[in-house]
Amino acid sequence: MNALKFIIKYQIHDTLRSKWLIIYTLFFAAISYGLLSFTNESSKVILSLLNINMIIIPLASLVFGTIYLYNNSDYIILILSQPINRKTLYLGMYLGLSFPMALSFLIGTGLPVLLFIRNFKEAGPVLFNLFLGGVFETFIFVSISFLIATLNENKMKGLGLSIFLWMFFSALYDGLILITLQIFRDYPLEIPSLVFTILNPVDLSRLLVILKFDISALMGYTGAVFTQFLGGGVGFAVSILSLLLWSTLPLMFGLRSFSKKDF
C-alpha cells in the first residue's frame, strides 16, 4: 500500500507540471467564463456547459490516457524491475492521471461559476450533478484508455481506437439508437432504450443533469424515456450505480491484462 501512495504522489507531481493539463484547465475556464458572461440564465449556461463537457472530457481523457501509457512505456519497465506489484503500478498511474485531470476540470469550470455564483441560486443540485458527471467521465474514460493502451502494442492502432470510441459514444451511438427505435417502433421500447442508455457512459452522465431539469425532452429520446420511466430518486441511483460500474469494469480488465502482459 505504501508503494501505491508513492507512485500516485509522484505521478500527480509529474502530471500537474505538464503543459497539456494547464491548457486543459484554461480551456474550461475560458469556455465557462465566456458562457457566463453572455447570459444570466443559469439553465442555459448549465446546458451549454454540459454539452461541451460531454464532448471534451471523453476526448481528452481517452487521448491523454492512451498517449500517457505509450509515452511512459520505458518508465513502466524501470518501475516494474523494482520490487513492486504490477497492479500497484497500474492503479497508481491510473489515479495519478485521473485525479489531476478531474481537478483541472473542476477548477477550470468551477472558478468562473463561483465568480457568477449569484446567477445559480436555485441551480445548486443541477450544478453539483454537472460536476459529478464530469468527474465520472474523467475516471471512466481514463480507465478505458488505459485498457486500450494495455491491449494494443501499436500506438497508432491504440490512438485510433480511442478516437473511434469517442466518436461512437458521443455521436454515433444516439443515431444508432434512433434508427433502432424507428425500426422497432411497433413494440414497447421503454426497457430497451433504458438499457441502451446505461450502455453509454456519456448518456449516463448527461442524464445526471437532465434528471434535475424539466427539459428532458429536449435532450434526445433516451433522456426523455429515462426521466419518464424512472423519475428522480431511482433514476439517480441507477445512473450512479451504472457510472460506478463503468469506471471499475475497464479498470479491472486493464489490471488483469497488465498483470499478464510481456514488456
Binding site: Y10, Q11, H13, D14, T15, R17, S18, N72, D74, Y75, I77, L78, S81
Partner: peptide
C-alpha cells in the same frame, strides 16, 4: 539492480 539499455523517466520530474 537492473540497468536497461534505454531508460526513460517521467519527463517532468
Amino acid at each position: 539492480g537492473y540497468m536497461p539499455q534505454i531508460a526513460s523517466f517521467p519527463e517532468n520530474l
